[in-house]
Design a protein around this nucleic acid. Structure first.
Lengths: 347, 347
DNA sequence: TTTTAGCACTCAAAGAGGTAGAGTGCTAAC
DNA sequence: GTTAGCACTCTACCTCTTTGAGTGCTAAAA
């Protein structure tokens, strides 16, 4: 069904979508003709509308109402019409100043970016922490904290720091610890996280056992913790601007509001939501989302990449009736900023 | 106005509150008489109700409706009636198992506890990260990360770890760094955070300048970062179970829902909310909350104290029509658990 | 003096028309 | 192919009425 769409139809469709995004109301032929000065009449528009509806781009809530765009309509809009009008968001200065106040720290950057993005687009923003797997370990250190407690610190080449307290059964002498540190550093520093597989660890374990003489459990334990910290699947999710959803007229009825807010309350759900997308920039419109509760929502997600390797995602959740041009460019920009911020704080 | 309240009035008030907590509807004399078998009639109840209303414990939405408890009524209930029926929450086992899976890390414990509490009471839970000021520094370390980047690590006696990346203008040699580490450790280790005041820092600065020969800016910078990490006022807030609010019938109208959800979206607001309370266990009912948007809500907050010093807060936000006995004991228990968890992971 | 039954009264919530207005689809003329 | 005209449709909103739970008051009973 590769029906050609006339330029006039395109014009009408675009106008309807823009108008609907603005007003959140069904758009009628008369209103449309009044607001946009087309060189054809409401009656013609009606005909075009009927065609567009048949093609699946528009829907009619009931017989005597105007039309609203369908998911397919938005999809067409995003794919074909948006590009020319991607605008750089205005005056980042204000946001950036606020951000730089809170200085370094991945956590601060992440939450700051989520906040900035949500303020910018006036929808809910979501940012996922960068995954480790593609970055290199630049440093790994075990610090003694107390008699049977060590602090494991892993720093990646992209400048991310991760630490974890490790509880040991048995005390380690200073010398033992030094040896341990030396071997671990030698073996792990400079290595890409994704190459630390079972076989490699097996090998490492052998070496440790051979060269040091502690109980095997300690080594096992350490290994466990190291892999834990490295492939922690459970990347943290930063959410901000939840309350913007409340401003959207389509969520004025409690039922749909509940649905979407419940999703936002479940970290795992969100994680799956953004992790599932792999492309550089993806737009999921309405029912294109697998999640049943998100069928009235759209999701715009971009991937950010850190210099030293490691990627994460940043996105926006809003109603299908979303200001796509603005959102897409803002999400894009934010992804870029995140890379820059972390890389610069990591130089 | 220290009017004595008869035991019968107390009985009626208690019944009304319990019934209202259960049903969320205004309670009438007839219903009350039917459900609770008092040895007096609806008419008598009506008289008592009229009295209780005059005393300020009850309110009437309109002339021909039943009564609902006022803030004062709940206050009385909480202060006088609750104690005898504080019950230990059932079967923590399930929650605890889930918690211990995620092992160590303050962050995990905090968010895990918030989650557990909210699941337990079926209201929104809030946990604030432990403040540093009353704990001692047990270790402070500067690790080189790259040529002009240091990782500052501070470990407190309660086992909390905090790190921050510091950007320097100028390179430090290994030796300089070692000296720096030595001096800082000597001066700061074992010291209570709250005693690190301006005067002390002045003194430290002098020493550093005298004994080392780097540019003053570096020293200033370091100092800045250290104080930053130590008294970071901006303690993190963990929130969980936001969506439970949606289940409450009193928030079935969009307006009040918006109000409260907007508050929950603002970290600073929440911080102030829990930080403002200093008592061991505090219950703020309705208008007792300063925040205008929280006047339909109650807040139950407890303080937890870590072994090595350092305190934080844990609480529950729900409608004034809250199951106080259950909530109070759960919050209390959670505070206790947090101390235990962090202390045990910090031994 | 306290408690209770009886009864008239009140008020919100829910349902039943009725109207207005925006919008459509169809037809016939341009 | 485009447009004006018109009958038709449907929701949103108003008003009116009914219903029922609940009250307060009064007078009788305990």
């Amino acid at each position: 069904m590769v029906e050609e769409i006339s330029t006039r139809k395109e014009k009408v469709l675009k106008a309807i979508i823009q108008e609907h995004i603005l007003t959140a109301e069904p758009v009628g032929s008369r209103t449309l003709a009044r607001k946009y000065d087309f060189d054809f009449s409401p009656a013609t528009i009606r005909n075009e509308m009927a065609d567009l509806e048949e093609m699946g781009f528009l829907e009619q809530p009931h017989t005597s109402a105007g039309r609203i765009p369908s998911d397919l309509g938005y999809r067409f809009y995003v794919d074909r019409l948006v590009e020319e009008e991607l605008e750089k968001p205005v005056s980042l200065k204000h946001y950036l100043k606020e951000l730089s106040r809170q200085k370094s720290g991945v956590e601060d950057i992440m939450s700051g970016m989520a906040r900035m993005l949500s303020r910018m687009v006036q929808y809910t923003a979501i940012v996922s922490e960068p995954g480790f797997s593609e970055s290199k370990i630049s440093r790994l250190e075990l610090l003694p904290v107390s008699s049977r407690k060590l602090l494991l610190i892993v720093i990646t080449s992209s400048g991310l720091v991760n630490d974890k307290i490790i509880q040991l059964e048995k005390k380690l002498t200073e010398e033992e610890l030094e040896n341990l540190n030396r071997i671990l550093s030698r073996r792990l520093a400079g290595r890409k996280v994704s190459t630390i597989t079972g076989a490699f660890l097996q090998d490492l374990e052998e070496e440790l056992k051979r060269r040091l003489n502690y109980a095997a459990e300690i080594i096992k334990r350490l290994e466990q913790e190291i892999t834990d910290i490295l492939d922690k699947q459970e990347m943290k999710i930063y959410l901000d601007g939840t309350s913007y959803i409340l401003e959207q007229p389509e969520f004025n009825d409690i039922q749909s509001l509940k649905k979407i807010l419940k999703v936002l309350d479940r970290q795992e759900e969100l994680r799956r939501l953004v992790a599932g997308l792999e492309d550089e920039l993806e737009v999921k419109i309405g029912a294109e989302n697998k999640l049943q509760e998100m069928q009235n929502c759209s999701l715009v997600v971009a991937t950010y990449r850190l210099e030293g390797g490691g990627t994460g995602r940043v996105g926006v959740i809003g109603p299908t009736r979303m200001e796509y041009p603005r959102v897409i460019s803002s999400v894009d920009l934010t992804a870029e900023l995140i890379s820059k911020f972390i890389s610069s704080s990591g130089r």
